[in-house]
Each structure stands twice: as structure tokens, then as C-alpha cells.
Simulated assay, not measured.
Amino acid sequence: MIEMVIEQRRRSLGGGLDVGRVLPFAKRRMVGPFVFFDHMGPLDVAAGADRSLDVRPHPHIGLSTVTYLFSGEIVHRDSVGSHQTIRPQEVNWMTAGSGITHSERFEKARAVGDHLHGIQAWVALPEGDEEVAPSFSHHAGDDLPQWSEAGVRGQLIAGSAYGLTAGARTHSPLFYAHLDLDAGARAEVPPGHAERAVYVATGAVEVDGSRYEAGNMLVLGADVSSVIAVERSTVMVLGGEPVGERFLYWNFVSSSKDRLRQAAEDWKAGRMKLPDADDKEFIPLPDDPFLKPPAMS
């Protein structure tokens, strides 16, 4: 059975960039270690777009960000010295740990126009690894195994599934994959994890005789083993083992509310290093109460 259906909530990040926020959700904060899930676009950007489209330098702690594109291009810069352009079917995996800052610039879109479409997920780090040294890795090619069978074309983004293992280092058991399905194709959802979900990025799928459209995340019970594409569809399958309760404040994730307060104070006081190649501006700590957990409001 399907335990829950989470419908994306559209919100603007500024500059015309809209995202569909899926996780966290009031009634379901996480799926395995996945604590955040945003569907970016799809958005057509004309050449000459304003720089407000860019995501200026901002901080993270206690998580790994996972950026994956269906189309478009993003330039990543961070405080450990990384400068990496990500393109479709590649992965930028950034582990914030004790603290990192980064920017995400849409330089191609502003220069010549672009079609932006992708997913950014956050993976919470287990308690023993929340304060690891920050790091960044980019993955493409053999690091992201692909397969094709019976109308399903898949790419493993992270973790282990379908008899394959992706290249990014993970800190807890998980899987994350991109599947393109022909109409009528049946896709297996990897078993063996305590929590699993399917996100319908495009098209529509059927589970247990019910149809689910794009923009919906289906949190699956242990008895659900597959989904069927009602039409040509793109889905993301994800899950893993729970890492325990996590608290969120803005871009910070931690098992400790005190650690969140410290991170917020550090950012506000300018104690977190900006990216070397992008240190002329940053996003201030927001005052929006919506972004604060109840204990901190």
C-alpha cells in the first residue's frame, strides 16, 4: 500500500525560478536519510536574464546536497575551493559536515538562454558524521551506472540498487535513481530498506490501480514492489535507513537545536568562509518565522 502521497508545494526562489518543495512535509519530515527534496523548474530562461536568477553564496551544515539535472546547466563554487559546472545526468555531491558555503549560478542561462529542470535533494548525515570535514565531489560516466530493460532506462545517482553501486561516498545506507519509463513499462522499486518513495517528475504512474500525476511523491509500504507508467514518465526512486530525528533551520540540518543556533549565529556574524571565487555577495540570514522550527521562533 501507499502510506502517504505528498504533493509538491510551488514556491519562488526569486528571479523567476520556481521550485516544487516536497520534503520536508508537515506529516512526513524525511524518507530514510532524505530530509529535503526540491523539484527545480522546468523553466525556460531567455538570454539576458537578470542575475537575481542566481543562488548567491549561502551556508550549510550537517547534510550532503545532491544536485541532479534533467536539462540545463549550473555552475557551483564553494568554500573548499571547488568550481564545477554540472550538466544533465551528472551529480554534484557536496557534504557540508561542520560547515560549508556555496553558490549556484545560472551563467549559461543568463548568457544564451537555457531550459532548467532538475532535482536538489539533501541527505542528513548520521550523528557520528554530522561534523565531518566539508567536501565536494562531481560524478559522471561510470560513477553513475546506467541500464535499460523492458521500456525502463535507469541511472543510479547514489547508493546501491539494481545490483549496482554509484560513485559518491555516502554516510548511511540509501539508494537514489532516475528512471525514464515508456508508456506501459513496469519499474521495480528497490526492496530491502526501511523507507522508500517514488517521485513522479513528469508523466503519470499507477500503483495498486490508482493513478498519480507529476509533482507527487508516493511514500511506499513494504508490500509495494513496482510502479507502472500510464504514459511516458520520469520518476525518481529513493530511500534508505532512518538516521533519527533532524531539525531544520533555513539551510542548516542537525540533530541538535543548539547546533542550529550556533550555525545561524556564525553566519550572521560572518564567521563562515565564503567561496574564494564568489565572495562579493551572500544571502543574509532570514528573519522569516516560517523558516524557524517551533523551539526557535
Rank of each mutant, 00 (worst) to 15 (best):
M4T: 10
V5D: 00
V5M: 00
E7K: 06
R9S: 13
R10Y: 09
S12D: 15
G15R: 09
G16E: 01
L17W: 11
V19E: 05
V19L: 15
G20Y: 07
V22W: 06
F25W: 02
A26S: 04
A26W: 02
V35Q: 04
F37R: 00
M40F: 15
L43V: 13
A46M: 14
G48C: 14
G48S: 11
A49T: 05
A49G: 09
A49H: 05
S52Y: 13
D54Q: 07
H58Y: 08
P59M: 10
T67L: 12
Y68Q: 07
Y68T: 00
R77N: 11
D78M: 06
S79A: 09
V80L: 08
S82D: 14
Q84Y: 07
R87C: 02
Q89V: 00
T95A: 06
T95I: 06
T95D: 12
A96M: 01
A96Y: 01
G97R: 04
G97M: 03
G99S: 10
I100E: 02
I100F: 08
E104D: 10
E104W: 07
F106P: 02
K108L: 14
A109V: 00
H115D: 03
I119N: 03
P126F: 13
G128W: 12
E130Q: 12
H138A: 15
A140L: 08
S148N: 08
S148Y: 02
E149T: 12
S160Y: 01
S160E: 12
A161I: 12
A161H: 15
T165V: 13
A166N: 14
A166T: 14
A168W: 10
A168C: 15
S172K: 05
L174A: 08
F175C: 00
Y176H: 09
H178L: 05
A183G: 07
A183I: 10
A183V: 04
G184T: 11
A185I: 14
A185G: 12
A185V: 13
E188N: 10
V189E: 14
G192F: 08
H193W: 13
A194V: 03
E195W: 07
E195M: 09
A197Q: 11
A201K: 00
V205E: 12
D208N: 15
D208Y: 12
G209C: 14
Y212K: 00
E213K: 05
E213M: 05
M217Q: 13
V219K: 04
I228K: 11
V230M: 02
V230T: 12
E231Q: 01
R232W: 04
V235T: 06
V237L: 01
G240A: 01
G240Y: 07
E241M: 01
E245L: 07
F247M: 01
F247H: 15
F247R: 08
L248W: 14
Y249R: 02
Y249A: 03
N251Q: 08
N251F: 04
V253M: 03
S254R: 04
S256Q: 12
K257I: 03
R259E: 09
R259Y: 03
R261W: 04
A264T: 14
E265H: 07
M272K: 06
K273V: 15
P275Y: 00
E281Q: 09
P286K: 10
D288L: 07
L291Q: 02
P293I: 04
M296L: 14
